[in-house]
Simulated assay, not measured.
Amino acid sequence: MTQPKKKALSPAQQYLAEVLRLLRTARGLSQTELGSLMNYTGAAVSAVETCAKPATDEFLESAEGALEAGGVIAAAAKYVRLERYPEHFRGFVQLEQTALSVSTYCTQLIDGLLQTEGYARALFGCTFPPLDREEIEELTAARMERKALFDRKPVCCITSIHEEGALRRQIGGREVMLHQYEHLLECAERPNVVLQVMPMDRGEHAGLPGPMTVIETAELTTLVYTEVEGQSTLVSRPEEVGVLARRYAMIGRQALRPEDSVKLIEQLRDEL
């Protein structure tokens, strides 16, 4: 039987493999000796250096310390993590990581920042064309890494408005959704998070044109990100941003208040 073709590692992973080899040889260490310092086998070090396997975050953190790399490996690892995201999403992720505020309006699915691992995995598992297991796990891990934003200093203010239909859509089955509702309720208790729901009985409202994310960058610039069918747009023209930001503000006024939104999420949880 023909074996499936192995996916080539990304340019960042290849670069990181070369950096690891150069730093190791500069220290006069064999692969086995470096592996011993890192609590890995020499074969594991060889697999990374030859690009036979991608380096995990744990491996890179251990290598940074064992080689006393002065932040070189850690800096390269940042770009390795970035490449785990779909290409059209990478620019947004970089903005999100340093944003002062992130405000989303979600119409079909729960906000990626607020998804549990089980919800995200089930979501990637139903993608078409289908993804293989490795790709699903890679995308799930990348989505979970974005959650660092919740505890980042300086604090990022996160507002997320969901259509009630997005919350009612059963992704992954009952247990996954129960965990997801509980996670949303826990997030709502954070002082830097505001959750709102646009109820289904709210007929005409400002959000009907579609989902969006409004970002206030570290440079105090407001941008708007939209995405449809894997095609993304980052709106930066002040007059266009102004229209979308005002629309988002109206969506927030038309949605349920945060306290009423929490009650609705509790109701959805209890109905399962």
Rank of each mutant, 00 (worst) to 15 (best):
V194E: 11
A63E: 09
A142N: 08
G207K: 02
V197T: 07
L184C: 05
L223E: 02
Y225I: 03
L100A: 14
C156V: 15
Q108E: 13
E137N: 11
E239M: 06
R246C: 01
L256K: 06
S261I: 00
E145Y: 06
P258C: 10
P130S: 12
C106V: 04
P86S: 10
A141F: 02
T107N: 08
V72D: 05
T56L: 10
T41Y: 10
Q97L: 13
Y79D: 13
G112N: 09
L109E: 11
I136H: 07
E186F: 03
S62T: 03
F89C: 00
G242D: 10
E145Q: 13
A12L: 03
C126E: 13
G252E: 10
Q254N: 05
E96Q: 14
R133G: 04
G203L: 02
L20A: 09
V80P: 00
E138K: 14
E134S: 10
V48M: 14
F89S: 04
D57T: 09
G242L: 08
L195H: 07
R253G: 01
E266F: 00
A8Y: 07
P129V: 09
Q31P: 01
L149P: 02
I158S: 09
V93P: 00
S10K: 14
Q115V: 04
L208Q: 14
A26N: 14
Q196W: 04
R121S: 07
E239P: 00
V80D: 03
T32Q: 14
L23W: 02
C156L: 05
C106I: 02
R146K: 07
A74W: 00
R133P: 00
Y15F: 11
Q196P: 01
A69G: 09
P191T: 07
H162I: 10
N39G: 07
A120S: 11
P258G: 13
I110Q: 05
A122S: 15
L208R: 07
F59C: 06
N39W: 11
L60M: 15
V80R: 06
E87D: 13
C187P: 04
V155R: 14
D57V: 09
G91D: 14
L100H: 11
A75V: 00
S36T: 15
E189I: 01
A99D: 12
G125W: 08
E240R: 02
V194D: 03
H183Q: 11
E18H: 08
K153C: 04
L9Q: 13
E271T: 13
G65N: 14
L16A: 15
C106F: 06
R269Q: 14
Q94E: 15
A8K: 15
A120D: 06
G210A: 07
E163H: 13
D260G: 01
A142T: 09
G42R: 00
V176R: 08
T50S: 15
I265R: 03
T104D: 06
F150A: 08
V241M: 02
E259L: 04
G35M: 08
P4V: 03
S62I: 00
A77Q: 14
A76M: 12
